[in-house]
Amino acid sequence: MKNVLRWDPPDSLQGAAVTYTVQYFIYGQKRWLNKPDCKNISRTYCDLSDETSDYEHQYYAKVKAIWKTNCSRWTETGRFYPFLETQIGPPEVALTTDAKSISIVLTAPDKWKRNAEDCTISMQQIYSNLKYNVSVYNVKSKRMWSQCVTNHTLVLSWLEPNTLYCVQAESFVPGLPRRAEPSQKHCISTLEDPTSALK
């Protein structure tokens, strides 16, 4: 739910000292609203996360360019619906291991918040049927398999000792057509098998 408006500078004014002003509109309301810290800015993006934080509303945004005393017409976005269109980030992946098993703990991504001290809302609270696709890759056998997981912990037992495994996870919401963003690959090696040392 971090919603950032981005645009390209006008072709004809590449390199010129152009500034931009942004406004946004809540669908169903009456007026366009200003975004104070995106008035006469030189960057080509504007973070509207705060203004669009009610994800069940829909929004428009528009931007115009100002150069010297000239002003361009507004360029407007389509209607933006955060609940359906926001991309859901990957879960956090924490791995612990022993000789023959790997424990995977998944933590749902958090909703964007304005200040660090604001209360945290998990995306799980917004999409209560959020699930995870966990892919496991055995580096030695070069075999990969995946598993669809609903809860936050997964234990892979009966693994090969002293073997490197790589784990990747992505969040998804069944029923909503949305591209999934996989997590980084987390690799960990199972430990030596103490019993094999005794033989």
Partner: peptide, 25 residues
């Protein structure tokens, strides 16, 4: 939802009354 996404932009672009909603979200 996937099929509607295909025509959503075109349909919504024809809506010239953004200050009114039917379903009042």
């Amino acid at each position: 939802e996937e099929s509607f996404q295909g025509i959503k932009r075109a349909i919504q672009a024809k809506d010239t009354f953004p200050n009114i909603t039917i379903l009042s979200t």
